[in-house]
């Protein structure tokens, strides 16, 4: 199956509990296989199945969590 990776710039995280919250919640998202969020670099790498979810949907999901997310192309 095809897997793609997208990196999002994520603003508004201040500590590891925010990182854990995002990683836990996003990994339970349908179509998201892997989530690696970095507090220092203020970004998040997502491995996903493009047939199930799109980068924009991932961005909106993080945005809905109250963080500012932009696709880092």
């Amino acid at each position: 199956d095809t897997k793609m990776e997208v990196t999002l710039k994520i603003d508004g995280m201040t500590c590891n509990s925010c990182v854990r919250t995002i990683e836990e919640n996003m990994s339970s998202c349908n179509g998201v296989y892997q989530v690696k969020v970095s507090l220092e670099k203020m970004d998040g790498k997502f491995v996903y199945d493009p047939r199930k979810i799109s980068p924009e949907e991932i961005r909106v999901a993080v945005y809905d969590m109250g963080f500012d997310a932009t696709i880092d192309c």
């Binding site: 508004g12 201040t14 500590c15 509990s17 919250t21 809905d64 109250g66």
Partner: peptide, 13 residues
């Protein structure tokens, strides 16, 4: 909420 970031997220929502 455990930290500033968390309350910041709720604040933005």
């Amino acid at each position: 909420m455990t930290c500033e970031g968390c309350s910041g997220a709720v604040d933005r929502i």
